[in-house]
Amino acid sequence: MSDDKEVIAQLGGATKVAQLLGYSIQRVQNWTVRGIPAQVKVDHPDLFLQHALARAAQTLTDDTGLKRRKDDILHADHLS
């Protein structure tokens, strides 16, 4: 859920997100503790999908061991 809290902060905070979505500030503030409901994320991909994709890309980038193994496998395939 800390990821959702970070997303809300990156979007400008609970007040800004509430204004963007037409919800009460208290409702959005609760999401910083309980998490953003999945249906809200699905209903507003313009706000939430970009953050999910950025997190996924960062995870792949951070896993240098996986990237190295993949590169080694690709290189070995070219040698055969």
Rank of each mutant, 00 (worst) to 15 (best):
I73Q: 07
L66E: 09
H51M: 08
A14E: 04
Q10W: 09
V42S: 14
A14G: 02
S80C: 10
G12W: 01
K5D: 10
A76G: 05
D71Y: 09
R27K: 11
A76N: 13
L21R: 03
D3W: 00
H44V: 13
I8L: 14
H51P: 05
Y23G: 11
P37R: 00
D63T: 00
D3I: 07
P37K: 03
Q39S: 14
A9Y: 02
K70M: 15
P45I: 09
V17A: 10
A56G: 08
D72V: 03
Y23M: 15
G65K: 03
G65S: 05
A9L: 15
A9H: 04
A54R: 09
L47E: 03
R55H: 07
E6T: 09
R34Q: 15
Y23K: 15
V40C: 14
Q29V: 10
A14Q: 10
L47M: 02
A56F: 12
L49K: 11
R55D: 11
P37I: 02
Q29T: 14
I36A: 08
S80L: 12
F48K: 12
I25T: 12
A14W: 01
P45T: 11
L79N: 12
A54Q: 07
L21N: 00
V33W: 06
K16E: 10
G13V: 00
Q39T: 15
A18E: 02
H75P: 00
A54T: 07
S24M: 06
T61A: 13
P37T: 01
